[in-house]
């Protein structure tokens, strides 16, 4: 068995003079995602050079380096060697976070639009969002947003042509076949379907958000009263006291 399993292969593309895009290609999205995060973890532990840092997403790792300390060729060659290493079973953290969501209205201005696009009633959209635990695939921009696979909609959801200048903290949005929880107010081109009252981000702790890739999220619909009652509650794992 190799670092990425038999069913995936790795492509390295230059991305400027101090960044590489490493794409894992394969048919099984879970295998691809696992290989991406294993590779990023290996790089972030300093396997090539301490200043190399890796940003894992769904199917790619952005590798940033300082050309003063190492080269793109050296990193590519190390990644080639990593592919041949035996897979190490790393303990995969997989906690569950319950996330109450107020759907529609001002909290989710695009909910009706999304319902139209996928050809289902609004209630069915909410049902699909809450039907499964969403695996957090990666932390993305802005501000350590939790990026997960989208709900099981029949079709991908197009982004807004012109991004909104500001969506509020706690926005739950969908685009393509992805879903994102945004911890802070930020511009966004995604379709906002709801909002959680939970407090997600804190800057007085090293881990600014409570989740990591591999954790799962369960969305629970709440009404306005439920939302108001929970406003400002810190987001935490299901078994945290």
């Amino acid at each position: 068995m190799t670092g990425t399993g038999m069913a995936t292969k790795i492509e390295v593309s230059p991305c400027g003079d101090s960044t590489l895009r490493v794409t894992v290609v394969g048919t099984d999205t879970d295998d691809v995602w696992k290989a991406v995060h294993r590779l990023a973890g290996w790089l972030n532990r300093g396997a090539v050079q301490p200043t190399v840092s890796a940003v894992p997403t769904y199917d790619a790792v952005l590798v940033e380096f300082d050309p003063y300390h190492t080269t793109a060729e050296a990193i590519a060659s190390h990644i080639g060697v990593w592919e041949t290493l035996p897979e190490q079973d790393e303990p995969v953290r997989s906690g569950v976070i319950d996330v109450p969501v107020l759907f529609g209205g001002a909290a989710g201005p695009d909910l009706g639009w999304v319902a139209d696009v996928i050809g289902e009633p609004v209630a069915r959209v909410i049902e699909l969002v809450c039907a499964k635990e969403h695996l957090i695939r990666c932390l993305g921009g802005p501000a350590a947003s939790a990026m997960t696979d989208g709900p099981d909609f029949p079709v991908p959801v197009p982004r807004l042509a012109t991004p909104r200048l500001r969506v509020p903290p706690g926005a739950i949005s969908v685009a393509g076949r992805q879903l994102v929880i945004g911890p802070v107010a930020a511009p966004s081109g995604w379709r906002q379907i709801g909002r959680t009252p939970l407090d997600i981000l804190r800057t007085d702790a090293e881990a600014v958000v409570p989740y990591r890739p591999g954790d799962r999220v369960r969305f629970l619909p709440v009404d306005q009263a439920g939302y108001d009652g929970l406003l400002g509650t810190p987001m935490r794992h299901r078994h945290d006291d």
């Binding site: 101090s18 895009r21 940003v55 199917d59 952005l62 940033e64 990026m147 982004r159």
Partner: peptide, 17 residues
Amino acid sequence: GEVLSRGVPVGAVEAPA
């Protein structure tokens, strides 16, 4: 088309609408 989110480097030149 709709693209899967990926890491984007500092200095990237993008062509939005």
